[in-house]
Simulated assay, not measured.
Amino acid sequence: MEQRSSWPTTQSNLLLCIRDAKDHGAWERFVDLYAPVIFRYCRIQGLQEADAQDVTQEVLSQISRSIGNFQYDPEKGKFRSWLGTVTWHRICRHRRTRARQVADARVGGEVLSEIPGKDDGAWVEVFNSHILATALKNIRARCSEEKWQAFHLLWVESLPPTDVAQQLDRRIEWVYKTKSRVLKELKREVEFLAADVGTLSN
């Protein structure tokens, strides 16, 4: 399985990379990964598709303008919570604008240093499910078809190892070893995408 020794090993390193205006690749990875999360959460909060797209772009623009001065400290809170706070403030501002009310929410650069007390349940679900789906997609691209099939049958479909071994005409030891190796890579991928999501069960 391919190793990415040149890639950051944690999400905080990706945040450091996007602070460099010259690192266009890091920013593209950030947008590709998190734009769908922001958009989906906006839709869950009741925004129409066009409005959700607008808010997504506003969030990304706000981060792009302010990230140069942002210091991410995982000891103070989760990256997931930080991004959720930025998104929520933008949704609130959008609603106030639509309602022609005076917007008094703090949505300037200072919001990037605010850590909420706890995550919104809908945001956590959208964030975590997207991270896992992305990690699975990335890992599948680096696995052989046979190894991925073994892992999928065991971990995703929860088939008994003996059934998987018989279906793939492999020894049971190979099945266990394959699951262990792929799961290890999956955990590393999740850590790279968002180190504070949590752990994966065996």
Rank of each mutant, 00 (worst) to 15 (best):
Q3I: 14
Q3V: 13
S6D: 13
P8Y: 08
P8M: 06
P8W: 04
T10A: 09
Q11D: 03
S12D: 09
L15A: 04
L16C: 12
C17S: 13
C17F: 10
D20M: 08
A21H: 06
A21K: 14
K22A: 15
D23L: 05
D23S: 05
A26D: 09
E28W: 05
V31P: 00
D32S: 13
A35F: 01
V37T: 07
V37E: 00
V37M: 03
R40Y: 00
C42S: 05
R43G: 02
R43H: 04
Q45N: 11
Q45W: 03
G46S: 03
G46N: 01
E49H: 07
A52K: 06
A52F: 05
D54C: 06
V55P: 11
V59M: 10
S61T: 13
S66D: 09
I67D: 01
N69L: 11
Y72A: 05
Y72M: 09
D73R: 14
P74D: 03
E75F: 10
W82R: 15
W82D: 02
L83K: 06
L83W: 10
G84V: 07
T87E: 08
T87P: 04
I91C: 08
C92L: 15
R93F: 05
R96M: 12
Q101L: 15
Q101R: 14
Q101T: 06
A103V: 14
A105F: 10
A105K: 06
V107D: 11
E110K: 00
L112Y: 02
L112R: 00
I115E: 09
K118V: 04
K118I: 03
D120H: 10
D120K: 09
G121H: 13
A122C: 06
V126A: 07
V126C: 12
I131L: 09
A133L: 09
A133W: 07
N138D: 09
I139G: 04
R142A: 11
C143I: 04
S144D: 14
W148T: 03
A150C: 15
F151M: 06
F151A: 05
H152E: 14
L153H: 10
L153F: 04
L154H: 04
L154G: 05
W155E: 04
E157I: 01
S158M: 08
L159V: 01
P160M: 06
P160R: 05
P161W: 00
T162L: 09
D163N: 08
V164H: 04
V164S: 03
V164Y: 02
D169M: 09
E173G: 01
E173F: 07
W174F: 11
Y176R: 10
T178R: 08
T178W: 04
K179D: 07
S180L: 14
S180P: 00
S180G: 00
L186H: 03
L186E: 01
E191T: 13
F192A: 07
F192K: 07
L193A: 05
V197N: 02
G198N: 05
L200I: 09
L200K: 03
